Amino acid sequence: MPGKNIQVLMKQHPQGWVKEEDFEVVEREIPKPGPDQVLVRNIYLSLDPYMRGRMDPVRSYAAHLNPGDMMGGGTVGQVIESNVASLPVGTYVNGMLGWQAYATARADELRVLDPKIAPISTALGVLGMPGCTAHYGLMEIGQPKPGETVVVSAASGAVGSVVGQIAKMKGCRAVGIAGGKAKCDYVVNELGFDACIDYKASDFKERFKAATPDRVDVYFENVGGEVMEVVFARLNAFARIALCGIISQYNGQPYAFTGMRHLLVNRAKLQGFIISEHMSYWPGAIAEMAGWIKQGKLKYREDIADGLQNAPQAFIGLLSGKNFGKQLVRIGPETV
């Protein structure tokens, strides 16, 4: 087999904002699959905000990286060598195989994909972790009811875009928050939200108030910081908040949040969640969302960087909001 296995490692723990110098691209030998393993040629890599938290040497829901460790992450690839009868050569699979071109895995570490149902890249976005995160957080924690107002931050992203579209299908008013006119226009004109407010606008608070005349019943939080402060001030009694992420805080100093009183006076429920702890929920959610895509009810957008060596730069862009849609890295061609 020609070539080498390119991997991206965390060279050092970032100090504040992530820099390209915090990563190292190396070449290794392509691994050989063991008796119960397959060799996967990775095609797409998913870049996600949670990866930033694992680069810090702090206690969290998952073990942090140490210098020299390979960056972890979800991939979509194709089996090119197999010692597993149920995974013949040519099978497309999804797994947590990391920032590398080739990887070995067992069958129980992989999800088999059918490219006839949807493009294989969707297994890392709308029909994968981000989509399931949106579905679970909104439906299980948010529990939206027809006529209610659902607000989601990072509304043009892989998670937020799905949240708002499902909210509309459930008969709710969907209000997004995003950065810049282009993203807000996409959220309203393409995804069908009722409104989208640019958090970068000087009159953000006033615009958000006008867009939520009946205040906020469900808030899906992806950003944290000042945006969360503004939304909390508009909560209705017994509002539900799904705490998915706080991307604005991942690189800088903690935000001095002062809005806790709104939770108390409105008797609001706030629940953080990690979708990997709810794997039994995935099949039903994916099946439902695949149906919506086929019916044209659920739309998605991908932002694809080319080349594994460009993954660090794309990741840094993701953390600063430069991506438009689900951020992926194309490692190699879909067919060879």
Score class of each variant (00 low, 15 high):
G321L: 00
A63E: 15
P333G: 10
S156V: 01
M10G: 03
I141G: 08
I316C: 01
G171H: 08
S161A: 13
T104R: 03
F208L: 15
V76E: 14
E190W: 01
L47P: 00
S46H: 08
F257P: 01
L45E: 11
D36A: 13
G325V: 01
L264Y: 14
P49C: 02
N266D: 15
R52Y: 00
A195C: 05
Q271V: 10
A174G: 10
P31F: 12
L124S: 06
F238H: 15
D69A: 08
Q271T: 07
Q15S: 12
P115R: 07
P31H: 13
L45N: 05
A103M: 03
C132E: 11
D48F: 02
R215G: 04
E20R: 00
Q37R: 11
D203E: 03
M71D: 02
S161V: 03
A154L: 02
K326R: 15
V265L: 15
G171R: 01
V8S: 07
E20Q: 06
E81G: 05
S60I: 08
G272W: 11
S60N: 15
A290V: 02
A174T: 05
P57M: 06
D185Q: 11
V163I: 13
A201M: 06
K209N: 09
R111A: 15
V89S: 09
I120E: 10
M228R: 00
G176L: 05
S280W: 10
I177W: 09
G192R: 12
A305R: 01
K297M: 12
